[in-house]
């Protein structure tokens, strides 16, 4: 399978601030990728670079094998749903959906109408007057109904309640199965979306920390907790990525698999051992102070 997106040494600087720092990765076709990271890590900047809405300071971007800048062959096959999309003041929901239809080749109007109903979107109301959750729903409907070969969602569910978010995940999965395409979903709600992701990219302070299959990252680390002295003893010689101390008690997160041998070793020292979830691992990787 050819790469839908290929990025090499991509860098973006705003004056003295480096938002994206020599990032390189490739996205294969027809997979769901998660772009994870804290607020301000560079996710949004990266997505704007991929869609030629921002210009790189350095590095190379190829989407569907070509440079996206001013390239209608590429741009018409991308749909980018932003958290903070601006709409013309006078546009109603129906106008946005119609406009989306003009610009996206694979637009499915019937499907868009079905989705609008599921999200309870008032077609005749002005976009300006929608609640935050409904506002986001408009973006989600556009993103799904565009059926664009590369669909990028940037935290698309700001303000959406849990019911609407679950609806989004469900619809995304169903449509992805029926109409496979390359999806890049950026989110900081990792635990919710995690099961949908086939592959994760973790960005922190502009750098790419992880670029792996999601399943490869699950179960990569475990945590032990108990008396601080015992934890220290256990952790000696192991790769500790996180350490919490509460007086005489402590817990450590360690890279490694929690096999029977390790469990026994922990039990022998009277420590509790448990695997670390994908979300927790990412929190540990991005929460540490800089070295």
């Amino acid at each position: 399978m050819s790469a839908a997106v290929s990025v090499k040494g991509l860098t973006k600087r705003f004056g003295g601030f480096t938002a994206v720092d020599r990032v390189s990765f490739a996205l294969q076709e027809n997979r769901i990728y998660g772009l994870l990271g804290r607020n301000g890590a560079g996710k949004t900047t990266l997505m704007h670079l991929l869609t030629a809405q921002l210009f790189p300071t350095d590095g190379e971007i190829r989407v569907f094998g070509e440079e996206p800048y001013e390239n209608s062959r590429v741009l018409s096959r991308i749909c980018f749903v932003k958290e903070s999309q601006k709409y013309p003041d006078n546009f109603r929901v129906a106008d946005v959906l119609a406009a989306a239809g003009y610009f996206h080749e694979n637009w499915d109007r019937e499907y868009a109408m079905e989705l609008a109903e599921q999200f309870r979107l008032p077609l005749k109301r002005r976009i300006k007057k929608l609640s935050r959750g409904l506002f986001s729903a408009v973006g989600v409907v556009v993103g799904l109904a565009s059926r664009a070969p590369l669909t990028i969602f940037d935290e698309p569910y700001a303000g959406m309640d849990a019911v609407a978010r679950n609806l989004f995940y469900k619809l995304l999965m169903e449509d992805f199965v029926a109409h496979p395409r390359t999806i890049l979903l950026s989110t900081h709600l990792i635990d919710e979306a995690s099961a949908l992701l086939e592959h994760v990219l973790l960005i922190d302070r502009g750098r790419l920390l992880l670029d792996e299959e999601a399943d490869a990252v699950r179960g990569r680390a475990y945590a032990v907790a108990g008396m601080a002295s015992k934890v220290r003893e256990f952790a000696a010689g192991r790769r500790v990525i996180h350490w919490d101390a509460f007086g005489a008690l402590a817990s450590a997160s360690i890279i490694g698999s929690l096999d029977e041998e390790t469990k026994a070793a922990a039990a022998a020292l009277g420590l509790e051992a448990a695997p670390v979830s994908l979300q927790q691992l990412i929190v540990h990787l991005t929460g540490e102070k800089s070295e």
Binding site: R31, I32, Y169, K170, M173, E174, F176, V177, A195, L196, L197, E198, A214, D215
Partner: peptide, 17 residues
Amino acid sequence: ANQFAALYRINPATAAK
């Protein structure tokens, strides 16, 4: 695999794996 994916709300490629 798609049925598993739909039921458990996971990525179909993962189910297929």
